[in-house]
Amino acid sequence: MKLRALSYLMLLLAAPATWADNALKDVVIDQSPTALRRGAATVTGVCMACHSLKYLHYRDLLKLGFNPEDVAGMSMGNKLEDPLLAMTPPDVSEQTYGRVPPDLSLLAKAREDGPRYIYSLLTGFYQDKSGETNNHLYPGIRMPDILGWSGADASQRAALATQANEVTAFLAWAADPRADERRSLGYYVIAYLVLLTGLLYVLKRRVWARLGQGSN
């Protein structure tokens, strides 16, 4: 424990720049349907090589505006009611990486400021002096730089940033697929309650007016 604290301290002294680098990046996540669908394609095609999204089913993807043929293309022979499991069996991943890659269904809710965390992680890879790939947000991460961010030049990074943004949008949706339904119902509920409370207020005033002055 002490040793680790000491090594962090040395890291800080050696590279003050990491202070700024490991902060979450200020980014606006594009939640448009197109971005969500493109993110879903990346996640099912790339991330799900190792990661599962077991609380999502292929049928859930239909809600993003995909048609059944699109989903069949992404599901690799799985049925609509099957959960989104990793293509690599968990025990194989464990042998390769030393642990089972975490399920991504709830990642956007399981971290403080989840979406920005995911985006910052995906675009936080860099090559240290010895040529090893590491991550600013998660030093010592075992996940490879799957998007190739660390080796990309500025123009490539613009495209990768968009892709990371789409992946983030999809994972945020996956963690809370009912969010749109919840908010749109919420507007009606609040509007109704404001109306009802307004009526109750006038009614209360009228009732108490019977007492004449001295009422509160």
Binding site: K109, R182, R183, L185, G186, V189, I190, L193, V194, L196, T197, L200, Y201, L203, K204, V207, W208, L211
Partner: peptide, 27 residues
């Protein structure tokens, strides 16, 4: 009707705040 009216009005105000959290910031 005095305190039924007052309590229900209070409930309405409470529900607006409560539903604000439930629908817009449930986490």
């Amino acid at each position: 009707p005095y305190f039924t009216a007052k309590d229900f009005f209070g409930l309405g105000v409470f529900l607006i705040i409560f539903c604000g959290f439930v629908f817009f910031a449930p986490e």
